[in-house]
Amino acid sequence: MFHIFCPYCQEYREEEEFHPSGQAHLVRPADPASVSDEEWGDYLFFRDNPRGIHHEMWVHRLGCRKFFNITRDTATYEILETYRMGEQPSITAANAEVRREQGVQTADGGWQTVGAQPENSRLNEETPS
């Protein structure tokens, strides 16, 4: 359950008050008539799905009704910053030290384990500290 700082209400609020709206910083072509079918298709249907730093748009649906962006690590679920519409992120995949944590998938029976040798010993070493 995320704890999200609304840059308009200036407070952390519970995730239930918000609604995700997909990838941030999508730009609608200024003159749709002049772009090719392929370019328009890209704009409509193609989205990034990075492991690590991702910029997402959310709306404070039950609060101030404002849209804003968050920078989130999709591997750790850590929210690194939130910023108002029209602003640029200060943390990006290019400038952040991307921490890659791999291989963890939730199993069905409670406890679960990761990998087998030799990969898993390496994974242990790579666990972020």
């Binding site: 963890v104 939730t106 199993a107 409670g110 406890w111 679960q112 384990t113 990761v114 990998g115 087998a116 040798q117 030799p118 898993n120 010993s121 994974l123 242990n124």
Partner: peptide, 15 residues
């Protein structure tokens, strides 16, 4: 049985 150390066999993660 596999002649390895415990952490080599795996680490446990709970949910």
């Amino acid at each position: 049985c596999l002649n390895r150390s415990i952490p080599e066999v795996g680490t446990t993660v709970f949910r």
